[in-house]
Simulated assay, not measured.
Amino acid sequence: PVLSDISFSIKGGEKIVMTGFNGIGKSTLLKTLISQIPSLSGSFRFSEQVKIGYFEQELAWADIEKTPIQIVSDAYPSLTIKDVRKRLAGCGISGKHAMQEIGTLSGGEQAKVKMCLLMMKPCNFLIMDEPTNHLDALAKESLKTALEEFEGTVLLVSHEEAFYREWTQKVINIEKKI
């Protein structure tokens, strides 16, 4: 176990940030909360009304040769190509990048595609693992505005205090107990 003796609660609509040293277990905790990995001990529960949206910091894709248009179309087959392009453009993906293989795009462009997919998923509880890692200043500002305006709950892992200081209500600082 990386983390032990941690306890916290989050109320609906709260904006919470989790900080702590790299490698301490923040990402592992988030993956446990979304049931991507099993809990080694302890327990947690979400309200029945919670619909989770998750942003993973790793830029992993099932097929790195697919374009953002193909990725979004595969996830939402009922959308027209025009609608897919419009959604991608709304997240800052240019027409050129929308037709480029995802594996050839920069980290920032890949993160924007992930944001686009997340924005299309109905949710009221966002769990975001270092979403600003690959974003430029303009994209970070857009994300900050979107998270401020989001009416649901946000649990964010971040090391960038300037990004979250103004809009979060609580900071959970995870530190290893020696």
Score class of each variant (00 low, 15 high):
Ser142Tyr: 09
Leu143Glu: 05
Leu143Trp: 02
Lys144Pro: 03
Lys144Leu: 04
Lys144Asn: 11
Lys144Cys: 12
Lys144Arg: 15
Lys144His: 07
Lys144Phe: 04
Thr145His: 14
Thr145Arg: 15
Thr145Asn: 14
Thr145Ile: 14
Ala146Thr: 13
Ala146Gln: 13
Ala146Phe: 15
Ala146Ile: 01
Ala146Trp: 13
Ala146Asn: 13
Ala146Tyr: 14
Leu147Glu: 10
Leu147Gly: 13
Leu147Ile: 08
Leu147Pro: 12
Glu148Ser: 10
Glu148Lys: 12
Glu148Leu: 06
Glu148Asp: 08
Glu148Arg: 10
Glu148Phe: 06
Glu148Gly: 02
Glu149Cys: 11
Glu149Lys: 14
Phe150Thr: 11
Phe150Asp: 04
Phe150Leu: 03
Phe150Ser: 03
Phe150His: 10
Glu151Ser: 15
Glu151Trp: 01
Glu151Asp: 14
Glu151Pro: 09
Glu151Lys: 14
Gly152Val: 04
Gly152Met: 10
Gly152Arg: 03
Gly152Gln: 01
Gly152Ala: 06
Gly152Glu: 10
Thr153Arg: 01
Thr153Ile: 03
Thr153Val: 08
Val154Met: 08
Val154Tyr: 06
Val154Ile: 12
Val154Gly: 02
Val154Gln: 07
Val154Leu: 09
Leu155Ile: 12
Leu155Lys: 07
Leu155Thr: 11
Leu156Met: 03
Leu156Gln: 04
Leu156Thr: 04
Leu156Lys: 09
Val157Asp: 06
Val157Lys: 04
Val157Ala: 04
Val157Phe: 07
Val157Glu: 01
Ser158Pro: 04
Ser158Val: 03
Ser158Tyr: 05
Ser158Met: 06
His159Ser: 09
His159Asn: 13
Glu160Cys: 02
Glu160Asp: 15
Glu160Ser: 10
Glu160Asn: 09
Glu160Pro: 02
Glu160Gln: 12
Glu161Cys: 02
Glu161Ser: 07
Glu161Phe: 00
Glu161Trp: 00
Glu161Thr: 06
Ala162Ile: 12
Phe163Trp: 06
Phe163His: 10
Phe163Ala: 09
Phe163Glu: 05
Phe163Val: 11
Tyr164Pro: 06
Tyr164Cys: 02
Tyr164His: 00
Tyr164Thr: 05
Tyr164Lys: 04
Tyr164Phe: 13
Tyr164Val: 02
Tyr164Asp: 01
Tyr164Gly: 03
Tyr164Ala: 02
Arg165Met: 05
Arg165Gly: 06
Arg165Ile: 06
Arg165Cys: 08
Glu166Phe: 00
Glu166Gln: 05
Glu166Asn: 10
Glu166Leu: 00
Glu166Arg: 07
Glu166Ala: 08
Trp167Asp: 00
Trp167Ala: 01
Thr168Arg: 09
Thr168Trp: 03
Thr168Glu: 03
Thr168Tyr: 09
Gln169Asp: 13
Gln169Asn: 09
Lys170Ile: 02
Lys170Val: 05
Lys170Leu: 10
Lys170Arg: 15
Val171Asp: 10
Val171Trp: 07
Val171Glu: 15
Val171Ser: 13
Val171Pro: 04
Val171Arg: 13
Val171Ala: 11
Val171Thr: 15
Ile172Pro: 04
Ile172Asp: 08
Ile172Lys: 07
Ile172Cys: 01
Ile172Ala: 07
Ile172Thr: 09
Ile172Gly: 03
Ile172Glu: 10
Asn173Tyr: 06
Asn173Cys: 12
Asn173Gly: 05
Asn173Ser: 14
Asn173Ala: 14
Asn173Met: 11
Asn173Ile: 08
Ile174Cys: 12
